[in-house]
Amino acid sequence: MDAILLQILNGLDKGGAYALIALGLTITFGTLGVVNFAHGALFMLGAFCAVSVKALLSLEQVTEDATQLTAWGTPLEVRVPYVESWFGDFGTVLLDYSVPVSILVAIPVMLLIGVVMERGLIRFFYKRPHADQILVTFGLAIVLQEIVKGAFGANPIPQPAPDVAKGMIDFGVAVGMDAGNVVYPMWRLVYFLFSVAVIAGVFAFLQFTTFGMVVRAGMADRETVGLLGIDVDRRFTIVFGIAAMVAGLAGLMYTPILSPDYHMGMDFLVLSFVVVVVGGMGSLPGAVAAGFLLGILQSFASMNEVKSILPGIDQIIIYLIAVIILLVRPRGLMGRKGVMEH
């Protein structure tokens, strides 16, 4: 029982990341009708927002303290981050919480990147075949990756979680089991709650605001909404920005779990596409459900008990599920007829 609970928990954070990326992909499919292979790169860019903020916050002021000497007899260099010398304790807290703090930076940055991408490139591809859309965004993904590689190097850059969330949490106690059975890293739980919050936010935005209503109407029938005198293109641009932001935040919050490097986006992108296909192209609830489902299944497949029966299953479980789903339910779990069929 506790083993099962632990695997479900283990799958939740990864599932959350899949769900967030797949959500953005689905929104882009549904509104703009564009297959965005650069979506994984947006995830990666979000992660590097956290890296940049951390790097900026930890810029250090170096002073030489002549009263103290090092072992070599030179004056001791005292390194104090500027934020600490300016803001004191608040600066220390700021540095400690660099990952959550960088959300504030990432939201405008990712929105801007999304809008620029849509206006500057994607909009010229609405009328082009899907193959062209795939190819041009694939090229863009490579370019973005290589730029990040040039700027930050090829090695993963670890990002610490805030001290509060660094430890483990004994989840078993909370649900009335013996202590020590279900121990779970705190930050993963934070990530899961964060992803649920973002997903809820996106759904609420689409469901309960006038803007969201127009967007949903535009997804169903773009032409009619346009004929009603509503500037659909403008709204869809903003929607693309939001999708970019969601992917960016997903990557940003994931940095304490997986140290970001330049190709992290590609690995997630392929899996997220599979998630979208399993969930049903064009279905938002499908994308979210399939994201969590596949995340949890993947964590079950990496249990040693399972691996000893079926070696290597953890590597391929997601693809295998996708194949089975497509053979049994060709439109995915919640796909509708006529959506992105061609």
Binding site: V35, H130, A131, I134, V270, F273, V274, V276, V277, M281, Q315, I316, I318, Y319, L320, A322, V323, L326, L327, P330, M340, E341, H342
Partner: peptide, 18 residues
């Protein structure tokens, strides 16, 4: 080949990655 268009591209991608 049971699917066309983007589905096909994604499926082949998934198989290659697998």
């Amino acid at each position: 080949l049971r699917r066309t268009g983007i589905y096909f591209s994604i499926l082949t991608l998934a198989f290659a990655q697998m």
